[in-house]
């Protein structure tokens, strides 16, 4: 199982949807798809993980890089749609406290529009 990413333009943000398995073998693909979106000052990115079945610390490393990059560039980085087993890994890592999370894409858009 691999990872697939799809990019769309929303009025509030760029929406990147990731599906499949995010681990040491596939995290370079997310890194390539996600980090350039946060390169410009003030970039707004919504990462939808509703179809992501699995994440390991290798995937969390990319998420952390993205959040730091957004903060440094004065942008916003919001994640949404975490499945329970993915949410559990975020919680064990203390990431739910330092990241902006929303239940659904609609909630994430509302957060970014505000």
């Amino acid at each position: 199982m691999a990872i697939t990413t799809t990019l769309a333009n929303l009025p509030e943000a760029l929406l990147l949807q990731a599906s499949g398995r995010l681990d040491g073998a596939t995290s370079p693909e997310l890194e390539k798809a996600l980090l350039p979106l946060l390169a410009d000052a003030g970039s707004r990115v919504l990462l939808d993980l509703a179809a992501l079945d699995y994440v390991s610390s290798a995937g969390l490393r990319i998420i952390l890089m993205a959040a730091k990059r957004a903060k440094q560039a004065g942008g916003r980085f919001v994640l949404c749609g975490l499945q329970p087993q993915v949410s559990e890994v975020f919680e064990m890592s203390g990431f739910t406290r330092i990241l902006e999370l929303a239940p659904t894409v609609a909630d994430g858009r509302a957060l970014l529009a505000g």
Partner: peptide, 20 residues
């Protein structure tokens, strides 16, 4: 053990796997 209480700027990804 990683510092799970660190703020975003100070967080590093190291040690999370063994922590799990």
């Amino acid at each position: 053990e990683p510092d799970l209480e660190a703020e975003l700027d100070a967080r590093t990804p190291g040690g999370l796997g063994v922590h799990f």
